[in-house]
Design a protein around this nucleic acid. Structure first.
Length: 928
RNA sequence: GGGCGGUUAGCUCAGUGGUUAGAGCGUCCCGCUUACACCGGGAAGGUCCGAGGUUCAAGUCCUUGACCGCCCACCA
């Protein structure tokens, strides 16, 4: 048994050692072959390209706390880890690598490109896993998943094929968000809007056969080349007469109709709008409505291509970049006198979430998932509380989004991802799906196996697979069940689905959480809807901000790297800091000072342990072994009675209370409360009071008298038992520290980890109101004594005599019985109990409603300051008394408020009156 | 345009209608008492953003205003 422990807690080596041990031992492997209550959770899989950031740290900390707590509480617990292939992000990384070699992916081809990505993954993709292991997350690593692994690939194929056959996935030419840099379509969610200063150009469109103009306002003059109409509101008197007439499109000299449509806002600009069906979603819809197709091929004129360059249809501007074209067009309009005016206009720019390039609305052929039918059941389960959402206001956000949901563009023009299992016929253009979802492994990687042999429509054999891959979030949506073996009916799926809980950030509520609910409900086979939901609860956590509440960002330079912090202060300290600040629904302002504070907390506990072991030599020289004091069997029978057991009754009563508070807080995701409770218990109750109070008793071990000796042994046993019990309470929050210390205590043979020990659950029978009250009163008296000493500038080490007067005999008896402790903790040489009236003269006295406490004052006190202070106190009490008396005099209050409240107020008033009187007494003493 | 948060001590934040509103850090005073200076003891510091209202009782509930932040939206 290692008795010597270092003076300061140095977490680095200890944490690394335990993290590795937990991983190597497969300590958190979940068993699906037994019955019993289950707690399961699927990790929000970090991106394979990523590195652990502070958001992961928060998320993993919260999950790990709950997982450790549930596991210790006896649930069969699974936390399933995994990594996401992260389509665009990963592809970008490898493309950059290629660029360094002067290559583009098109040059090396799809197969070679995919090979390169896999190679990259093999080399660098493991770092995030290593980091997670280092964090000590209690995942079941035997069940680790990667979204492109064969079983997952197959699940994605299965989901796609089913939805396709049901008509919920379709292909078509629609307006999508197009990123000209990533060269792929994006879903609406992957486009973010940023407010930017822009311009509004007013352009004159000459009316055909007239010298008049109609002026339109636009933020995007370059699109005018693709205009096929001008639209006005049908009720707009200014333009009514023009509807049905033609305008001449400047620069292109094309005749376009003037149409009327309700969507036009009469207030905006001139009330006349140019219509560009190929480059604006509204205009596209208008084009459809007005069947501009009757104009033949001019209906949707694409003037901007996939690279955001002007197409041949842009005439003289062909080949120019979209923004260069804009400038030139404005120039040309100006020189032709067709630019009416330009105003400043603040607009919201649509930009690619990944690369921040301005996104282009673009017509293209894409795959879509029909959302309305999927959203309805999801709305139902959330609305009806089958999946409670915490904090609850997120529920509304969730439901609003689902209610207004639009179809989801699921195809991406990338090479890294799950390839769409559909084949196109070269002869008749019909589509033929894979025959089933089976996958085969080619070059070590999954790929669809059941390739169709001939076209389902014409029987032709010239089939080519659709080149697109699926949005990464499509596979994410299946995560809670694809990771458990779906579509097969596996023991894991039967045991752990629905998962117990989903914890994720509010930033991916729509990206991920909502889609998991929809897919789970639609694809899982069970009849009962509550068996199909992907998780039984949804906890939405906040984001971590910098010390001033600013969002962390690379450009601001205020990003903190959790791994750096961990190296400096330890994982436990960071975990605790994040936890104690994590009130549901509010963001966290994380500062290094705060982390330092919890590093100090870890050190405090470390040193409490150190104290326990410090005296072992003395103990052993007295012939007592550590096992006798702290073996599991001995601990189990605590608390042990002693001849003066007040403080023991008190600490165990506190433990009982704290146990209930922590369990209840965790039950309700009130992480900050739970952490707060254990913090103050350990530091305040256990270290500051319990240990300090016990010190003299512990020292009595060497004494000959058998009563003292027995008492000392009982005291030691209680101390160890309380400490070990508290370590278990703390373990989910500070896993490393508690594991290390727990192993320094005697443990049963084969005991592996504190994390597999029971978490204190059922309310232990230790509640002792009398002991809590008594210790509270003694604490107040000791604090009053210290307070008075400090005010009188009595030297800290100097022991002085004191006088004490209690308001009642009970308190007097309590102080009498505990005089030794009071004297020790307040450093008093003597404690004389006598009525206030008999206090010797020349004392300085401090008073509380229930007692007076006096010591001889050594120095003259600053009387005027003292008087000022007392007057302030007097005013305060007067105000308080007045308001209380008023309330008590109010008959409505007396008749309507609960009797308990009235009684409480009366009692407080009585106390305050005593305080008031005592304050007046002191004032009159000083004033004379 | 719609919606959601927030405004409480110098700073960052808790606070579940009820008796004298809390924490951490910071500040000030005193202490290296053999667990811990990553410590111990003590102290100062708040008309809970403003205005109305409900209630016996409001930091807490309602209405409204101001300011700050965020999300959503087919804001030419």
């Amino acid at each position: 048994m290692a008795r010597e422990i270092p003076k300061a807690y140095e977490p680095q080596e200890i944490e690394r050692r335990w993290a590795q041990a937990w991983f190597d031992d497969n300590l958190y492997r979940a068993d699906s072959s037994h019955s019993g209550q289950v707690f399961s959770i699927a990790i929000p899989p970090p991106n394979v390209t990523g590195s652990i950031h502070i958001g992961h740290m928060l998320e993993h900390t919260q999950i790990d706390i709950l997982v450790r707590w549930r596991r210790m509480s006896g649930r069969r617990t699974l936390w399933l880890p995994g990594i996401d292939h992260a389509g665009i992000a990963t592809q970008v990384v490898v493309e950059r690598q290629l660029a360094k070699e002067g290559l583009k992916r098109e040059q090396i081809g799809r197969d070679e490109f995919e090979r390169r990505v896999w190679q990259w993954k093999a080399e660098s993709g493991g770092s995030i896993k290593k980091q997670m292991i280092r964090l000590g997350v209690s995942c079941d690593w035997t069940r680790e998943r990667f979204t492109l692994d064969p079983p997952m690939y197959r699940a994605v194929m299965e989901a796609f094929l089913r939805l396709y056959r049901e008509g919920l996935i379709y292909r078509g030419r629609y307006m999508v968000n197009w990123c000209p840099r990533c060269k792929t379509a994006l879903s609406d969610l992957e486009v973010v809007h940023e407010s930017r200063e822009g311009r509004l150009w007013y352009i004159r469109y000459p009316l055909a056969g007239s010298s008049e103009f109609i002026v339109v306002a636009t933020t995007r003059p370059e699109t005018m080349l693709g205009d096929t109409a001008v639209a006005v509101h049908p009720d707009d008197d200014r333009y009514k007469s023009l509807v049905g007439k033609k305008a001449i499109l400047p620069l292109m000299n094309r005749e376009i109709p003037i149409i009327a449509d309700d969507i036009v806002d009469r207030e905006f600009g001139t009330g006349a709008v140019k219509v560009t069906p190929a480059h604006d979603p509204n205009d596209f819809a208008m084009g459809q409505r007005h069947k501009l197709a009757r104009l033949g091929e001019l209906a949707e004129i694409e003037v901007i291509d996939a690279d955001a360059r002007m197409t041949p249809a842009a005439g003289p501007y062909a080949g120019l970049d979209r923004f260069a074209a804009r400038e030139k067009i404005v120039e040309d309009l100006k020189s032709q006198g067709l630019l009416d005016r330009v105003t400043n206009y603040s607009l919201s720019a649509a930009i690619c979430d990944r690369c921040k390039t301005i996104v282009e609305p673009r017509l293209s052929v894409q795959w879509f998932c029909k959302m309305k039918p999927l959203a309805e059941p999801a709305i139902q389960v959330v609305r009806d509380g089958l999946i409670p959402v915490v904090p609850e206001n997120q529920k509304k956000v969730f439901l609003d989004w689902l209610t207004n949901i639009r179809d989801w563009c699921i195809s991406r023009q990338l090479w890294w991802g799950h390839r769409i299992p559909i084949w196109h016929c070269a002869d008749c253009n019909a589509m033929t799906p894979a025959r089933d979802s089976r996958v085969e492994i080619i070059n070590g990687h999954a790929q669809i196996a059941s390739v169709p042999e001939k076209c389902a429509k014409c029987g032709g054999s010239k089939l080519t697979q659709d080149p697109d891959v699926l949005d990464t979030w499509f596979s994410s949506a299946l995560w809670p069940f694809s990771t458990l073996g779906w579509p097969d009916d596996t023991p894991d799926l039967r045991t752990f689905y629905p998962t117990s809980l989903m914890i994720s950030g509010y930033d991916i509520l729509f990206f991920w959480d909502a889609r998991m609910v929809m897919m789970g409900l639609h694809l899982m086979p069970q009849d009962e809807i509550e068996q199909r939901i992907p998780f039984r609860q949804l906890y939405v956590h906040a984001i971590v901000r910098d010390p001033h509440g600013m969002k962390m960002s690379k450009t601001r330079g205020n990003v903190v790297d959790p791994l750096e912090i961990i190296e400096k202060h330890g994982t436990d300290a960071l975990r605790f800091a994040l936890t104690v600040m994590a009130a549901p629904g509010t963001d966290i302002a994380l500062s290094e000072e705060r982390i330092l504070g919890y590093r100090a907390f870890a050190n405090k506990i470390w040193n409490a342990a150190r104290f326990l072991f410090f005296n072992l030599e003395k103990i052993e020289s007295a012939g007592v072994t550590l096992e006798e004091l702290a073996s599991p069997e001995v601990r189990a029978k605590a608390p042990y009675p002693t001849c003066d057991s007040l403080v023991h009754r008190w600490i165990f009563s506190r433990l009982a209370a704290v146990t209930n508070e922590i369990n209840e807080a965790l039950e309700n995701f009130r992480f900050h409360e739970a952490a707060h409770v254990i913090y103050h218990f350990f530091w305040g109750d256990f270290c500051d009071w319990y240990i300090e109070w016990l010190k003299p008793q512990l020292a009595r071990l060497g004494e000959r008298a058998s009563q003292d000796r027995d008492d000392a042994i009982a005291t030691w046993r209680n101390l160890f038992a309380a400490f070990e019990y508290a370590l278990r309470l703390l373990h989910p929050f500070m896993p490393f520290l508690t594991e290390e210390l727990w192993h320094k205590l005697p443990q049963p043979a084969g005991a592996k980890s504190i994390s597999l020990e029971p978490f204190p659950l059922a309310s232990p029978p230790w509640k002792d109101v009398d002991a809590e009250q008594s210790v509270q009163q003694l604490r107040e008296i000791i604090v009053a004594a210290r307070n008075l000493r400090a005010e009188l500038k009595v030297e800290q080490r100097k022991s002085v005599p004191a006088y004490f007067s209690a308001s009642d005999g009970k308190l007097n008896g309590l102080v009498d019985r505990n005089a030794a402790t009071v004297k020790m903790l307040a450093n008093l040489s003597d404690l004389n109990l006598m009525p206030r009236a008999k206090f010797p003269s020349g004392l300085q006295v401090r008073s509380a409603p229930s007692f007076d406490f006096g010591i001889v004052h050594q120095e003259t006190i600053d009387e005027s300051a003292e008087i000022a202070k007392l007057k302030k106190e007097k005013d305060r009490i007067e105000k308080d008394l007045e308001s209380k008396r008023q309330r008590l005099a109010d008959q409505t209050f007396r008749s309507r408020a609960p009797a308990e409240i009235v009684r409480g107020l009366e009692a407080t008033l009585a106390q305050r009156e005593i305080e008031y009187q005592k304050t007046l007494d002191r004032l009159s003493q000083l004033d004379k």
